[in-house]
Nucleic acid binder design. Structure first.
Lengths: 141, 141
DNA sequence: GTGTTTGCAAAGTGTTTGCAATTTA
DNA sequence: TAAATTGCAAACACTTTGCAAACAC
C-alpha cells in the first residue's frame, strides 16, 4: 500500500533510465507533472507555468528541451492542431483527438468510437507514418 | 475558345468583388497564381517567391494579409499539418490531405477513398466545426 | 573528474501590425 | 477626395541555440 504512493516517481525514474536520459531534478519533476495524472495534453508554456506554480525551479528553455527529449524518446507524442503552438500528449498509443477551437483544449478520443473505412492508396514510393484525425468543435451557444 | 483564355482572370475579379475585396493589382495577381491551375497548397513564403519569380511586385506582408483575407472570405482554407507553418488550400470543399513529412508537400485526398465509420459523440455544449484527417507519409527507401 | 544538463540571453522562425504613402472607386 | 490597401520596419509569439556554471555519475 505504501508502495503505491511512490509508484509514479519510481516509474518516471525507470522510464528516464530506459530512455537513456539522466534523471535530473528538472526531468523528474516535469515527468512527475506529466505522467502522474493520466493522459495530459500540454504546451511548453502550460507545463512551465504549472512547474512554477508547484515551486519547481526550471526555465522555459529547459521545458522545451525536455518535451523534445521526451518526445524523441517515445515518452510523449506531439500533436499538431494549431500552427504556432505545439501540444504534447502523454498518450503515445495510436489514437485521435478532439480540439476545442474556442479555448485551445485538446482531448483524446477513444479509438473505437471512430475508425477509417479504408486507407487511401499511398503515393508511389511512400510509406505510412501515421494518420492524424482531429475533430474540431466549438461552443454551441 | 478565345474566351477560355481569360476565364481565370475574369473569374478572380468576380470572386473578389463577391467577397467584398477590392480587386487591387496585388490581389488579382496572387489570385491568378492561386486559382489559375486548379488545386494548390501554398505557404505565404512559397506564394511570395512565386510572385517574385513572375515579376509581380508584392511584399511578403501583403501576401500574408491577402492569404488571410482570402481565407476569411472563404476563397481559401487553412490546413494545419506542421506547427510553425501555415498552408493554404485553394480547394475549400470538404476533403482531407496527404502530407509528405520529408519535403513538406501537401496533396488533396479524394473524399471517397476514405471515410469515418461514425463521428464520436461530441462533448456536451459543443458543435462540430470540422473533421481534419491528415495521412502522414514518408519516403520508403 | 568527466561528460551531461541547465539557465540565461541571444538568435531564429513564421506571422502580424502601425503608419505614411499609394491606390481604388 | 474619401476610404481602402500597400509596403516597410518594427513588434510578436513561439521555439531553438551557444556557452558558462551547475550537476550527475
Amino acid at each position: 500500500m505504501g508502495m503505491m504512493r511512490n509508484r509514479p516517481f519510481t516509474d518516471i525514474l525507470a522510464r528516464l533510465r530506459t530512455a537513456g536520459l539522466r534523471p535530473t531534478r528538472q526531468r523528474l519533476a516535469l515527468g512527475k507533472l506529466l505522467f502522474a495524472d493520466g493522459n495530459r495534453h500540454v504546451t511548453a508554456e502550460m507545463l512551465h507555468e504549472e512547474a512554477v506554480d508547484n515551486k519547481i525551479q526550471v526555465s522555459l528553455a529547459t521545458v522545451y528541451n525536455t518535451l523534445n527529449q521526451f518526445t524523441d524518446a517515445g515518452l510523449l507524442r506531439e500533436v499538431v492542431v494549431e500552427s504556432g503552438r505545439s501540444y504534447f500528449d502523454t498518450n503515445t498509443s495510436e489514437h485521435h483527438h478532439i480540439f476545442h477551437v474556442d479555448n485551445g483544449a485538446l482531448e483524446d478520443l477513444s479509438d473505437d468510437s471512430m475508425r477509417l473505412v479504408e486507407l487511401p492508396v499511398l503515393p508511389e514510393g511512400t510509406q505510412l507514418e501515421r494518420v492524424d484525425i482531429v475533430i474540431r468543435v466549438r461552443n454551441s451557444n
